[in-house]
């Protein structure tokens, strides 16, 4: 197992290098430079500013020099400074937006799991029942609906007409003056709509996935055996079938690790939430190379670790895989 782990970890290094190289080149291929955007179309801007900025940012160097400069700082865990006019360290900009992004994503994944696992199971057990059909219809409707449109409808309904939920932001004005309980309530009420909106798209996929897994599992011989033993249907489904049907969930959770720091530009924009999605989008629009690369590298590292984590926990949870590994090793 240790050997396997170290092998996997070592393999990550060239993979990561490859990812950074490709990302770096692709981003610089995109037309436009940060300096254009900061100096152009401004009747008061001097024409020499452009050149000065290029030198300050190191954009006058050949691309491979820029890449090696960037990489040599990266190996010291220095992500560099943003090209935006504030020139703040990339790391600070990202850290500032991580907590809310992670919180939203965790809550949304939890909501997806809590709702879609039971939905999937019931749909599978009562296949082609009215319940199955109507949930299928509903989750697909949720999936197909543009989230920004649904968000605006809900904001108008719950926020403006009924006035029960805040429309946007993370906290109310005057949050500092609320009691502790009031603060918690205030934060929760601000999270309800964003979490619901970000979860609704995922519900469809996951509940369908759960349903087909379950259908797959109940056709297996060991379920037949369990039934033949005379176990009650409840025990068959919730003990023997469910455990096996849940296994792939681990993979999905592992794969969603990088998603924890990714955000959706659309719902962050609509709910005015300062998250990673908007940060990244703005960075791309501004051609803020260090910030783009910083976020991409963090995402890449998390993806690689998420995959590893998924594989490991899969092996731990599924004896078939564990034994196979040992058999090979």
């Amino acid at each position: 197992m240790l050997q396997y782990l170290s092998k996997r970890l070592l393999m990550m290094i060239p993979l990561l290098l490859g990812i950074t190289l490709i990302s770096f080149v692709v981003i610089h291929l995109a037309p436009g430079e940060p300096t254009d955007l900061q100096t152009q179309m401004n009747p008061q801007a001097g024409s020499d500013l452009q050149e000065r900025l290029r030198v300050q940012y190191g954009l006058d160097q050949p691309l491979y020099v820029q890449y090696f400069n960037w990489l040599s700082r990266l190996v010291q865990l220095d992500f560099g400074e943003s090209f935006a006019t504030d020139r703040r360290p990339v790391f600070d900009k990202v850290i500032e937006r991580l907590p809310i992004t992670i919180l939203l994503n965790v809550l949304s994944i939890l909501l997806i799991l809590v709702v879609s696992i039971p939905l999937g199971i019931i749909s599978a057990v009562r296949r082609n029942s009215a319940f199955d059909r109507s949930t299928t219809l509903l989750v697909f409707a949720g999936f197909a609906m543009p989230s920004f449109w649904l968000a605006l409808l809900l904001m108008d309904w719950l926020g403006v007409r009924l006035g029960v939920l805040p429309i946007s932001g993370l906290k109310s004005l005057g949050y500092e003056y609320l009691s502790f309980g009031g603060q918690i309530l205030d934060r929760i009420s601000h999270l309800v709509l964003p979490v619901f909106i970000s979860a609704i798209g995922g519900l469809a996929g996951f509940s369908r996935y759960m349903r087909s897994n379950m259908l797959e599992v109940v056709r297996q011989d060991y379920i037949l055996t369990a039934r033949a033993k005379g176990l009650s249907e409840r025990v068959v489904i919730y003990k023997h079938a469910l455990r096996n049907a849940l296994l792939p969930v681990i993979t999905i959770l592992g794969l969603s690790v990088p998603g924890l720091i990714g955000g959706s530009v659309i719902f962050e924009t609509i709910f005015a939430i300062p998250g990673m999605g908007k940060l990244f989008y703005d960075a791309v629009m501004m051609r803020d190379y260090p910030l783009i690369m910083g976020i991409l590298v963090m995402g890449a590292v998390l993806t690689l670790f998420g995959n590893l984590l998924a594989d490991i926990s899969y092996a731990l949870a599924d004896p078939r895989i564990r034994h196979q590994e040992q058999g090979e090793g």
Partner: peptide
């Protein structure tokens, strides 16, 4: 508030 529709909803409330 990056979205002007959201701004408008906020204005209304």
């Amino acid at each position: 508030i990056p979205d002007t529709s959201t701004q408008f909803l906020e204005l209304q409330t």
